[in-house]
Design a protein around this nucleic acid. Sequence first.
DNA 1: CGTTTCCTTGACTTTTATCAAGCGACGTGG
DNA 2: CCACGTCGCTTGATAAAAGTCAAGGAAACG
Lengths: 246, 246
Amino acid sequence: MDKFASDTRCHTNPQVSCGNCRLNSICLPISLHIDDIDKLDDIIQRSRPLQKGDYLYRANDEFVSVFAVRSGTVKAINITNDGQEQVTGFYLPGEIVGMDGLATNRHTNSAIALETTAVCEIPFTRLEELSIKIPSLQRHFFQLMSKEITSDQQLITLLSKNSAEERVAALLVSISSRNQRRQLSSTAFRLPMSRADIGNYLGLTVETVSRVLSRFQKQGVLTVDKKEIEIVELGKLQAVANPIGF
Amino acid sequence: MDKFASDTRCHTNPQVSCGNCRLNSICLPISLHIDDIDKLDDIIQRSRPLQKGDYLYRANDEFVSVFAVRSGTVKAINITNDGQEQVTGFYLPGEIVGMDGLATNRHTNSAIALETTAVCEIPFTRLEELSIKIPSLQRHFFQLMSKEITSDQQLITLLSKNSAEERVAALLVSISSRNQRRQLSSTAFRLPMSRADIGNYLGLTVETVSRVLSRFQKQGVLTVDKKEIEIVELGKLQAVANPIGF
DNA sequence: CGTTTCCTTGACTTTTATCAAGCGACGTGG
DNA sequence: CCACGTCGCTTGATAAAAGTCAAGGAAACG
């Protein structure tokens, strides 16, 4: 028998279950008992991967589900009244996106895949029901939302108080540590988003982002090759980002 | 019998219950049945008013409760690694503050009264228990958190995309509409916070805030007398703030 | 293989911050 | 009750940071 026939290790494989998922130690199942994980598993829908540019949901869509990113990257954007877009977050594997829809039962953000991306869709009403049966899940979900709040507030602080260099450094450090959490390299990675998205997220123009990256490279803090980043002096980068934490 | 002896209408009166509270149509009790309100009422603690400058809680305090503002105003601040403070929100009567503590069981913000302020303290573990018994309360609390997220994201957009004038206009319009919700004047009110707090919140210096207000006054959009604001042309102010919504 | 998109770099402009000064309200202690 | 110091606010002059405009090159894409 082919030992890979029912392989559940690959995180793009739709057959994978929460119990087997490589990301379960950082995703929703965290802190659940093994049989509770199965219950969670039952309500989760795994669809085929999204292509770059595909929408996970659009602003004003009815709020039905939240989504756990399985692989790839998602950006969340708000559209302003005058039609510009504002990137409010990047979501990497193991992170949950879509909680913006709860307040009004409609999404206020849109979520877009930045590359080929697989997600687990979690219907919210069923998650709510399950939360009532599994208090630790309720608590965990409250915590996820609260974490979203604190991370938004860190971004607010960043935008309000920090220079272009500090903002870019903070984003790189953030991605670095989120990679580390997923057991990936914290010093060498590919940026999944464009310079325009970075600038948009950080409240800077593309030109400024580009200049800051060039400056960091000139200073020997990192090397940039298109989207490939290698952080040479993580400590120095953290020091620049430090005032904030992020 | 003195008809005011057991008056529960005054919002600084510690005896008031959710059922009688002037704010119950915009506060936590919203959407609860009358007997559910009583259950909520049972867990709420009403303490004596805070004085200007008093802390409701401090960053790193254990997370025990969330707080509904009954009267007065509260600001929430983050302290950055280098000791500066960042105002992340102003909370007016009927609004809930303190949800930042959920993620880690410790508050990441501090909350400070900007004037004499009365609050209802809602112990979170008891709210959680009650949420399990009253699903509409669970839903409502999820919604409150989600609303916090969307309002933070609007602030992010504001900080990221908008000029000083647009930011100040947006704050004024926001306060105006929150006043309206509480059946107060939407065009004449006293700013409960200092120029420094406004600037801090909006990512501007005191000087810039002051200049923008002067400019608005010169343009006849509003009149400023110290902290008293009268909005003369609300439409024009909304138009300036418009790109965002906020 | 041509076209489009993304990124970088340079020159210049604009916005807001910084520095400095002064005014008026407020509160405290003499 | 007044004098004084502090604090909060305003206004002006100047500086710095980031934005805008423009151009060119490299990679991606059909």
